[in-house]
Design a binder for these strands. Structure first.
Length: 499
DNA sequence: AACCCTTTGAAGGGG
DNA sequence: CCCCTTCAAAGGGTT
């Protein structure tokens, strides 16, 4: 559902799950100073400390390079291995109780750290952001004693793309992704218009004026000719709808229609001349050959389509999985107003799609209707998992052990709703409990790693019972966030706790 | 070549 | 009604 009314449950949906960082050393700071990603990171950091100091931060590899999209399989294996190893090594350790192994925090003053011994940021550190913040490329929990960390495990590069949230350096408030003087529907500069097609580009000319008037109130008459025809053939398969089945009345191909190559070889014009004997067989054949009418794009898809190139350019990434992760975070960082524009676009897309292809059903595109390979493969993968959230859901906070909490069999947001977040499992709280941008703002120090933890998780793991430094706290959008600096395994670590 | 990965949202079906 | 599954885009990666 569109989240315009807050019903979508994504209000707090910062997908800023576990993101760990590792310091790269001072020498690596100067790389890629000109990258936009770095500028964004600088903005983020500046927003935290309310300073506008020139960015001197390092940039490191793109997110995908530093943190390839998680592969649940390998992650699980790694995690389990590390758990087993940890179980062996933590003999006599502070924490033994599953499901989450504890993380003994050893407080060692770090003279090179900008943080005071109590974990607070030193005044100088608060006003200077000269620290490289590089994300840990691994998914294995870095606090696991077994895991050794050395610089060779990490490669310098650009700041994490997820830190490229558009943040106003003056206000610290995440910027809308669109310049205020440009319509968010057409956020590209004239020079880039040609590079990124408008989601409704087939419908909307470059000047931004729809080919057909589109009103929010009604979509009844924008396509008088085509729609009249279509409406009169509402139950006919789209491929039988003349002659523009893949063309709009403008002659512009509708992106929702993909005509199979085989379709090019077949003729529709002779359908009417078919004898009744062969009609059935022909229909069967046609059914197999009919063009694939795609689903209308939803709001997020429209957003992705529009913003992908921008993210690709900023992050010098091409891997869509990584790009999509970034886009997902940015989507959550959008204001409701910004999202509303895409929801409205999507609504129009659906309406248009519905009018153009009245008999179409999303079910038509299910793999079972064409070839079952994909579906079968997916099912094979899911077979035995039962519930991914229960058995395999990798802890999104910090690559913690897989969720074993059987009380959280489903995604908690869907199950309990926003009003009962106290019933959510830890990972779900991690994912959804912190306003967008908070985590990015916490990275304004010299940190080896930083982690986001829900308070109750710390409690579960008894970390709270161990001596902790005084946390630094701040409130953003009504959400109190604490973080403290610890040192572990020779590295400075920031632990973020939201309450 | 086909599918996976990764994201969010819409839609349809089953219970 | 709730939950689950599938599919929209994208393109590098994997099988």
């Amino acid at each position: 559902m569109p989240q315009l009314n807050g019903g979508g449950g994504d209000d707090l949906g910062a997908n800023d799950e576990m993101i760990s960082f590792k310091d790269e050393g001072e020498q690596e700071d100067k790389i890629s100073e000109n990258s936009s990603a770095e500028r964004d990171l600088a903005d983020v950091k500046s927003s935290l400390v309310n300073e506008s100091e020139t960015n001197q931060n390092s940039s490191s590899d793109s997110e995908a390079e530093r943190r390839p999209p998680p592969r649940s399989e390998s992650f699980r294996d790694k995690t389990r291995e590390s758990l087993e190893e940890a179980a062996k090594r933590q003999d006599g350790g502070l924490f033994k109780s599953p499901p989450y192994p504890g993380y003994p925090f050893i407080m060692i003053p770090d003279l090179t750290s900008p943080y005071l011994p109590n974990g607070s940021l030193s005044p100088t550190a608060r006003t200077s952001n000269k620290v490289p913040v590089v994300q840990h490329p691994h998914h294995v929990h870095p606090l696991t004693p077994l895991i050794t960390y050395s610089n060779e495990h990490f490669t310098p590069g650009n700041p994490p793309p997820h830190l490229q949230a558009d943040v106003d350096p003056k206000t610290g408030i995440p910027r809308p992704p669109h310049p205020p003087d440009i319509s968010p529907y057409y956020p590209l500069s004239p020079g880039t218009v040609g590079q990124i097609p408008h989601p409704l580009g087939w419908l909307v000319p470059q000047q931004g004026q729809p080919v057909y008037p589109i009103t929010t109130g009604g979509f009844r008459h924008p396509y008088p000719t085509a729609l009249t025809v279509n409406a009169s053939m509402s139950r006919f398969p789209p491929h039988m709808v003349p002659p523009h089945h893949s063309l709009h009345t403008t002659g512009i191909p509708h992106p929702a229609i993909v005509t199979p190559n085989v379709k090019q070889e077949s003729s529709h014009s002779d359908i009417g001349s078919l004898s009744s004997k062969h009609q059935d067989a022909k229909k069967e054949e046609e059914k197999k050959k009919q063009p694939h009418i795609k689903k209308p794009l939803n709001a997020f898809m429209l957003y992705m389509k529009e913003m992908r190139a921008k993210v690709v350019a900023e992050c010098t990434l091409k891997e869509s999985a990584a790009i999509n992760q970034i886009l997902g975070r940015r989507w959550h960082a959008l204001s409701r107003e910004e999202q509303a524009k895409y929801y409205e676009l999507a609504r129009k897309e659906r309406q248009l799609h519905m009018q153009l292809y009245p008999g179409w059903s999303a079910r038509d595109n299910y793999a079972g209707n064409h070839q079952g390979k994909k579906k079968k493969r997916k099912r094979e993968k899911q077979a035995g998992e039962g519930n991914e959230h229960r058995e395999y859901f990798p802890n999104p906070c910090l690559s913690l052990p897989p969720i074993t909490d059987l009380s959280a069999p489903k995604k908690c947001r869907a199950r309990f709703g926003l009003d009962q977040q106290n019933n959510w499992c830890g990972p779900c709280r991690c994912v959804s409990g912190v306003p967008a941008g908070v985590l990015e703002q916490v990275t304004a120090g010299e940190l080896s790693h930083w982690y986001l933890l829900p308070l109750f998780w710390l409690s579960q793991t008894r970390i709270l019972s161990t001596p902790l430094p005084l946390p630094i706290s701040f409130c953003k959008s009504g959400q109190w966030v604490l973080f403290f600096i610890a040192r572990w395994d020779g590295r400075v670590v920031c632990v973020v706790v939201f309450v």
